[in-house]
Write a protein that binds this DNA or RNA. Structure first.
Lengths: 350, 350
DNA sequence: GTCGGTTTGTGGAAGGTTCCAATTTCACGG
DNA sequence: CCGTGAAATTGGAACCTTCCACAAACCGAC
């Protein structure tokens, strides 16, 4: 039962975790009975149960999930793929997803892709090798190879706050969200409105919000101008903050900016004020997401808040539903309604 | 090789992932050879290798990590326990830890404990069942039962930004950190300095910073007053924001506050300004951690920044070191030096 | 050809569970 | 005391790998 000592330095003894067989031997029953006791299945007499429980405690036995996973073809693990955990919105979402998942008995594997398709692919590969029961995608680079890799694998996938027609999805209705922001600005009197894109943002959402912006502007009788859609960023991410400043320096510049997400809106707020433009004095600024930081009174960013809690709970529910009741069912897609939160970063134009 | 159809609705066919045996059968070699090809071990002829690789691709074979884990007694999984992922500092740390771990071939299991010892215990239990190779503790409630549970398990543990004499640790030197903050305030002319505690904060760090504060104050010839150490919080977390406001309303109130972390400092900034106290006009405010939000020009919080990148990389290095070169070695403990970042939330007293 | 040595390939055990069919034990009525 | 059905218990197969000792094939030299 115990192995021999391995080395001579006197402190390293072969250490073996107790197995179900050790428990069986100590309590004088078969491993099947121990298994039944541990899982509370089958029928075992009280006396036997007590003896087994005692042996379990004496030995400090803990079932080996690895072995269980192998035989059950089930790991109770779910993977969460996120672009940038340092983005408040993602962090909050992941936190809530982990909570719901663990309440349902699942443990969460988190992978940060940094928005690189290559990394995304390799992390998915790792998740699939670990035989996760399902994957929640919070960010998706949109890389076609990755998508087909995933779809070809028959692994349940739920997209949370992003979108694909082939998988279960839950996301905010971007037409409504962007509409709320634009309408608010229009009501304040703005006519010249620019749109700031975050190059690091998840691809499907990025497109859908950008498209929504154009449609909403048109609907408000304000034909969008393509040069007023600016990719903002520090440079190494493919965006160009200078372009936005340039735009504001031109004649008849935008009097308001809708940013594709709060993270960008707050960066922009820094940028503008650093360049001597007051917010909302010179330019109004609205974001999307509703991160906590936007609510600080010193930031006071007007934003279209996503219902994070519903996003997380519905996302987990969709994923677990697919895991537990079969892979083959038409994808379920849920659109949630966002809510406008008006703060002090927006005001009537000069 | 393929199983029979299962149900009659015509779309659900028993699906089995290909195993190493399927590959072996298709390519006409033994599973051992397939294994050798996959792991690039042993010696296999070019011709055979090609045939195997082709079969692997045809079948879409992916090694089953579950089976491998079982036989290798190794999962290449590490657990990360964090109190609150929605706290910027933690999110950034987790992100970096995940990066380092995955670069080293490990996948990361993230658990959010919410600061509850009970939840902490149950999440650790889950991690141990999954047979993670090691656990990184970013937050530790300090619960003794949990600690002994962990220490009794012979599982490698590294504490990142928290401390225990029994495990590998890497954290900032709190005496130095708090010292920098206090010294800065003293140099500005403050004599009456309060200390704001975050009740949700990780226990060991909370104590060490609180103790450091007292010692540093004493050293500066400013005997700390116990009623000036205030547990700040919304109430449901055990803290009491009102108490801090009360304190400021008294006579000869503190002219400066050191907060145990940036998160609390920023909350306090909101609170104070909401109550009509200007920062830094009426009260100076300094935090600890150096989160990104503190650097926003509208927040401009003076803070003692932790070297996040070193914390993460060293933490992972310590953990992997212990995993890969033996459990029994004296704990390694590393103290890093924090750095003061002076911004606009601190100024000379009135 | 045969011999030694190297390269290449193989079969089977082990790893720790769950599940199921089969067996043993038990309690009770006849 | 036997038979019966239910309750309790058990042994072995299966899950999919890795690893190791061993076998087969091959090669060049004599």
């Amino acid at each position: 039962m115990t192995r021999e000592r391995i080395v001579g330095d006197g402190r390293d003894t072969a250490f073996r975790r107790p197995t179900i067989n050790d428990v069986a031997a100590l309590s004088g029953v078969s491993k099947s009975t121990v298994s039944n006791v541990m899982r509370q299945t089958g029928s075992v007499s009280d006396a036997t149960r007590r003896r087994v429980v005692e042996a379990v405690e004496r030995l400090g036995y803990r079932p080996n999930a690895t072995a269980r996973n192998l035989v059950m073809q089930r790991t109770n693990l779910i993977g969460v793929l996120v672009g940038d955990l340092a983005n408040d919105f993602n962090a909050e979402l992941v936190k809530r997803i982990e909570q719901h998942a663990s309440a349902a008995g699942y443990t969460t594997l988190v992978c940060n892709t940094g928005g690189h398709a290559e990394r995304e692919g390799s992390r998915i590969e790792a998740l699939l090798e670990q035989r996760v029961d399902g994957i929640a995608l919070l960010d998706f680079t949109g890389d076609r190879a990755v998508l087909s890799q995933l779809l070809g694998e028959r692994v349940p996938v739920a997209m949370v706050s992003c979108w694909s027609e082939y998988a279960d999805c839950v996301a905010v209705d971007d037409m409504v969200g962007v509409g709320l922001a634009v309408q608010h600005l229009v009501e304040l009197g703005h006519r010249r409105i620019a749109y700031a894109v975050d190059p690091l943002m998840e691809a499907t959402t990025r497109h859908s919000r950008a498209e929504a912006f154009d449609r909403v502007m048109l609907r408000s009788g304000l034909p969008p101008r393509s040069e007023w859609t600016v990719l903002c960023g520090t440079g190494d991410d493919g965006g160009d903050d200078a372009a936005m400043l340039e735009l504001l320096r031109g004649e008849a510049p935008p009097t308001a900016i809708v940013a594709a997400n709060d993270h960008t809106a707050i960066r922009l707020m820094e940028l503008l004020e650093g360049a001597g433009r007051a917010v909302p004095g010179d330019v109004s600024l609205a974001g999307i997401d509703g991160i906590d930081t936007a609510g600080l009174s010193r930031i006071a960013l007007t934003t279209v808040a996503q219902p994070k809690e519903e996003l997380a709970s519905l996302g987990v529910a969709l994923l677990l539903g697919r895991i537990e009741s079969g892979y083959d069912a038409p994808p379920q897609q849920r659109r949630l309604r966002p809510a406008l939160i008006v703060r002090q970063s927006t005001a009537p134009p000069r």
